[in-house]
């Protein structure tokens, strides 16, 4: 019963044209980045991972996901969260689900599962395309880390897989909060606008050093620390802090969404 519900949820999501367009857009990112670095002149250089991209195709998926985590991936997560509850309410299909003899908590978990599955799928797709595009345009000589060591391709793939999991978790945390917003409205656009505005405002707030007491509460503060995956050996402090931070958002988002759904009139 539950597996059928989960399966149909993901099928529904995949069938929406905007999902496909979104996925297509996401896949373009690593290709454009690889092509751009390949055609760019100069001997590389620059801040962070961008500096080690040249001749180092295995880093493209990490770089792509790291960049996309700031705006693109939260946007996609918010679209899926918006469609999940607000979209269904708009089409009148949510009413049917709410009066059905199915627990509303289960409904929420089906939505959350759909969000997680699609996030993992999208991030993995970006990573795989990144590996292919990076290898094709920039070459693959193992993976050079920020610490100047070179990992074997197998070790590199392991790092990419680890990063995919970390990024997906951040995306799901953003999506869970978006689901809570989604449960309160019938307008999917409101959900997207609210989520994206928050992410952007968080990032702006993160720039002001006079507000540094606030920074540990912002989910966006945790994003840059994930770059530690590219150091060798990996320091886990920042990665675990970021993941715990996202976990708190996931709990808050899911809890608020559940409260709203349970108290909602059908």
């Amino acid at each position: 019963m539950i597996t059928r519900q989960l399966g149909s949820e993901v099928r529904w999501m995949l069938r929406r044209p905007r999902t496909l367009i979104g996925l297509f857009g996401l896949v373009l990112v690593p290709i454009v980045i690889s092509f751009g670095i390949w055609t760019a002149d100069g001997d590389g250089g620059g801040p962070g991972i961008a500096a080690i991209l040249r001749g180092n195709g295995m880093v493209v998926p990490i770089f792509t996901l790291f960049l996309s985590l700031n705006l693109l991936l939260p946007l996609v997560a918010s679209i899926w969260a918006a469609d999940g509850l607000a979209g269904e309410a708009q089409h009148g299909t949510l009413r049917g689900l709410l009066v059905a003899p199915v627990s509303r908590v289960r409904l929420l978990f089906v939505k959350l599962f759909g969000l997680t599955a699609m996030s993992l799928f999208a991030v993995t797709l970006m990573a795989v395309v990144g590996i292919i595009a990076g290898t094709a345009f920039l070459g693959n000589d193992g993976m050079m880390t920020l610490s100047g060591t070179t990992l074997t391709t197998a070790e590199g793939l392991l790092r990419i897989a680890f990063f995919v999991v970390l990024v997906t978790f951040q995306m799901v945390a953003v999506g869970a909060v978006a689901l809570a917003v989604s449960a309160t409205t019938e307008h999917p656009l409101v959900v997207q606008a609210a989520t994206m505005t928050s992410i952007i405002v968080f990032q702006v707030l993160g720039q002001f050093s006079s507000l540094d007491w606030l920074h540990p509460f912002l989910i966006t503060t945790g994003f840059p620390g994930l770059v530690d995956v590219m150091r060798d050996p990996i320091p886990f402090d920042q990665i675990s802090d970021s993941t715990l931070l996202a976990g708190c958002y996931l709990l808050i988002g899911t809890g608020l969404a559940a409260i709203r759904l349970v108290t909602k009139d059908s």
Partner: peptide, 25 residues
């Protein structure tokens, strides 16, 4: 059952908020 669900959800929200403040300390 509804009350139990609400209590559990509220506990989840509280745990998340407490976690945030613990991380910030």
């Amino acid at each position: 059952k509804r009350k139990v669900t609400l209590a559990a959800a509220a506990a989840g929200v509280l745990t998340g908020a407490t976690g945030l403040s613990l991380l910030a300390m």
